[in-house]
Amino acid sequence: MDEIVRRAVRSALFLVAACLVVRFMVPDGKTIAAGIILGVMASLMNALLLRRRINLIDQALQQERPKRVSIGLGARLATVLIVVMIAVKFPEQFNLPSTLISSFYVQLVVFAIAFVQSLRDSSGKG
Rank of each mutant, 00 (worst) to 15 (best):
M1H: 09
D2S: 14
I4G: 01
A8Y: 06
V9L: 11
R10K: 09
L15W: 11
A18D: 10
A18H: 06
V21N: 05
F24L: 12
G29T: 02
G29K: 01
I32E: 05
A34N: 08
A34S: 13
G35Y: 02
L38G: 04
L38K: 08
L38F: 05
G39C: 11
G39P: 10
V40I: 10
S43T: 05
A47G: 00
A47S: 07
L48F: 12
L50A: 11
R51A: 14
R52C: 09
L56H: 02
I57K: 02
D58W: 03
D58P: 00
Q59D: 12
Q59V: 11
A60Y: 07
L61Y: 07
Q62N: 10
Q62Y: 11
P66L: 05
V69K: 09
V69F: 01
V69N: 06
I71S: 09
I71C: 07
I71T: 06
I71K: 03
L73T: 08
R76I: 14
A78P: 03
A78Y: 08
A78Q: 04
T79K: 06
V83N: 05
M85L: 13
M85K: 06
P91V: 06
E92K: 08
Q93I: 08
N95K: 00
L96V: 11
L100S: 01
I101D: 07
S102Q: 04
S103D: 00
S103T: 08
F104Y: 11
Y105G: 01
Q107C: 00
L108M: 14
F111M: 13
A112R: 12
F115V: 13
V116L: 14
Q117S: 10
S118M: 11
L119T: 14
R120Q: 15
R120H: 15
S123P: 09
S123N: 14
S123A: 13
S123R: 15
G124K: 14
